[in-house]
Simulated assay, not measured.
Amino acid sequence: MVGLLGQYRSEKGAQSQLEYNDFMEWLSKANHTEVKGLLELNTSATIYIKALLNQDHEIFKQKLEKIDSALTAFASTVEGFSELAQAVNPDALLSEQAVSILEQIQNLAPLKLLN
Rank of each mutant, 00 (worst) to 15 (best):
Glu103Gln: 14
Leu27Trp: 01
Ser69Asn: 04
Ala30Cys: 01
Asn115Thr: 15
Gln7Ser: 01
Ala85Lys: 00
Asn42Phe: 14
Glu34Lys: 05
Leu94Trp: 05
Ala51Leu: 12
Ala51Asp: 06
Gln15Thr: 13
Val99Glu: 11
Tyr48His: 07
Thr43Asn: 10
Glu11Asn: 10
Arg9Trp: 07
Leu64Tyr: 02
Leu114Arg: 15
Lys112Ile: 15
Ala70Met: 10
Arg9Ile: 06
Ala109Phe: 10
Thr33Asp: 11
Gly6Arg: 07
Asp68Leu: 12
Glu58Gly: 02
Leu102His: 04
Val78His: 15
Leu113Lys: 14
Leu53Ile: 10
Glu79Gln: 09
Leu93Lys: 00
Gln106Phe: 13
His57Gly: 00
Ser44Asn: 11
Glu103Cys: 12
Val99Thr: 10
Thr77Ser: 00
Leu93Tyr: 03
Asp22Asn: 04
Val88Arg: 01
Val99Met: 03
Ile59Lys: 06
Gly13Glu: 15
Ala45Met: 12
Ala45Cys: 05
Glu65Leu: 13
Lys12His: 00
Lys61Arg: 14
Phe81Cys: 07
Phe60Leu: 13
Ile67Cys: 06
Ser100Phe: 03
His32Asp: 02
Ala92Leu: 02
Glu83Pro: 05
Glu34Gly: 05
Ala87Ser: 05
Leu41His: 12
Glu11Tyr: 07
Ala85Asn: 03
Gly13Pro: 11
Gln62Leu: 13
Glu19Ala: 04
Gly3Thr: 13
Pro90Cys: 00
Leu102Trp: 10
Lys112Asp: 14
Gln7Met: 04
Glu34Met: 09
Met1Pro: 02
Asp91Ala: 10
Glu25Ala: 08
Glu19Leu: 08
Phe60Glu: 06
Ala92Ile: 03
Ile101His: 11
Tyr48Val: 04
Ser100Arg: 11
Phe74Val: 09
Ser44Arg: 06
Leu18Trp: 11
